[in-house]
Each structure stands twice: as C-alpha cells, then as structure tokens.
C-alpha cells in the first residue's frame, strides 16, 4: 500500500500557548504546517518537551489550538472526530479496569451503534491481529505491559479508523516486545489501509516504521525537517535494520534531532535546503 495524493489530515498554522493571558504564559507550539496523505505512515520525532503530545492532543480534538486549524477528511476538528483513534502513551491507564479485554475492545463499537454480529467480527479480527484471542475474558490488570499495549492497539484498530494517532506507544516495553509490536503496527497499517501518525523519541523506531519522518524543533515548536524514508515496503527487524540505506537515514534523522535539541523554532539548520534529498 502506498500513500495516495488525497489529503487525509491537514494541519495549518497550528499554534499553542499554554496559560494564555496569565503570568505563566508558555508558547509550546509556534507554528506547524503539514499534511498527511491517505495511507501514509508518518513518524514524529523531537526532543523531550518539544510539544509532540501537545500537537497530538490538538489533532485528536482533546485540546483547542490557540491559532490555526486541523482538518480531517475536509472537516475542521473541534472535538474528538469520527474516524480517528488514538493510542495514548499511558496505555495501561487507558484500559477500563472494570471490563474484560473483549469488553474494552467492544465498547467503542457499541457506543458507535454497531450491531452485535459486526462487533463480534471486529473484536475477533482486532484481537486476532494482535494475537490476543486467548486473553479475551481476562481483565487488563491480569496482563503484562506488552499485552495491555496490544489491547489498546486492538481497541483502536477495531474501530477501523481512517487515521490513527499513537503517542510514544512503545516507550515502556522491553526491546523484544517492542520489535514485535513494531511489526504488528506495520502489519495492521497495511491490512486496514489507515493513515498513521506515530510519535516516538526513538530514532531507529521512526526510520524502521515510517515512510516519512517529521522532526520537530524545541519549543516554541516548528517543523525542523521532513524526511522521506525510501526503504522497501516489506520490512522486518533484522534485515531492514541491516540495510546500508537504513544507516544513512538514521544518521540523518539523528543529526536533525541533535540540532533540534539546541534550537527552538525559527532557526534553520544548515541541511534545511537539502530537505527530502538526503
């Protein structure tokens, strides 16, 4: 599956000032403009505190921007929009502890008004994709961290979102599980024809997963760089990581992130003119 030219998510002039009008005013996001095309898998990297979560919350309609707008499928976002699912960083706390795994996955479908048969189908499909059919009747707190994360992903995937946002979803799982989850996300992305915006601070992960990496600057945040990842569509942990092209791309993203760490929005790196032509 490749990205088409159809714009799925349009972000223009997005700005966020926390505590506007108070003495502790803080400009977290200065100005962000970028588009996500249908079917694209974009990774968002940036130093800690660069406003990645802030951006995601604005896109998800959980927080109003100070200026600018987010447009999803041609409609301006002014609250959590239909057709979008979000996997939060605190996945363990995002599962309802009073419901079993299958009920957690079912609830958004039920609230959306899908009939019983369709719900069953979606649950089976989503839990199958993340390899958790056996844990259907368990409660979230009976599962390991990696399993909980997979439930959160299954819940998002089951809604068949056209756009899925993920905020550092694998930051807290061990390396082995992380590799498995990365493969999993690539697989469901290709299966379900989604557009994904994936926040991470792990450079390897961004290059491995995305077909595009957007690097953010320090706050006040702007887009520092936007890199096309021209690795093959079929990726797997060992082979892909060993490609010479992988190493080149990783080096480039690394340099950009290093530069971003010391530079707030507005200052441009020397490689800026070389954007997309690494």
């Amino acid at each position: 599956m490749t990205a088409s030219e159809e714009v799925r998510l349009h972000i223009s002039g997005l700005r966020k000032i926390y505590g506007l009008g108070t003495s502790s005013e803080f400009e977290a996001v200065k100005r962000l403009d970028f588009d996500l095309h249908a079917g694209e898998f974009a990774c968002l990297v940036g130093p800690s505190g660069s406003g990645k979560t802030t951006l995601l919350k604005m896109i998800a309609g959980l927080m109003d921007p100070t200026e600018g707008e987010v447009v999803l499928n041609g409609k301006r976002v002014d609250g959590p929009p239909e057709g979008m699912a979000v996997v939060l960083q605190e996945y363990a706390r995002s599962l309802f502890p009073w419901m079993t795994v299958e009920k957690n996955v079912e609830l958004p479908l039920r609230v959306a008004g899908l009939d019983k048969a369709t719900r069953e189908e979606r649950i089976a499909e989503a839990l199958g994709a993340v390899g958790l059919e056996a844990a259907r009747k368990k409660f979230p707190w009976q599962l390991s961290g990696g399993m909980q994360q997979r439930v959160a992903i299954a819940r998002a995937v089951a809604t068949h979102p056209s756009v899925m946002l993920m905020d550092e979803p694998f930051a807290a799982v061990d390396a082995q599980t992380r590799g498995e989850l990365e493969d999993l996300v690539r697989r469901v992305w290709r299966q379900l024809d989604m557009t994904i915006l994936f926040v991470t601070h792990d450079i390897d992960e961004s290059v491995f997963l995305g077909d595009r990496v957007v690097v953010l600057s320090m706050a006040p945040t702007v887009v520092q760089d936007d890199i096309k990842i021209d690795l093959p569509l079929e990726r797997e942990q060992l082979g892909t990581h060993a490609l010479p092209r992988f190493a080149e791309l990783r080096k480039h993203v690394y340099e950009q992130v290093q530069f971003a760490k010391t530079n707030p929005g507005g200052i441009h790196s020397s490689t800026d003119e070389r954007r997309r032509t690494v």
Binding site: G61, L62, E82, A85, L88, R93, S94
Partner: peptide, 18 residues
C-alpha cells in the same frame, strides 16, 4: 476518575447515558 480514562472516553466519543 483517572484523566487518561476520561481522555479515552472523549477519544471514542462516549457521551450521555453510555
């Protein structure tokens, strides 16, 4: 109620009775 659960309920557009 946990902020993350509230956010989750918002994300999936749970309103009113449900």
């Amino acid at each position: 109620l946990d902020e993350v659960l509230k956010n989750t309920a918002d994300i999936y557009r749970f309103k009113g009775w449900p």
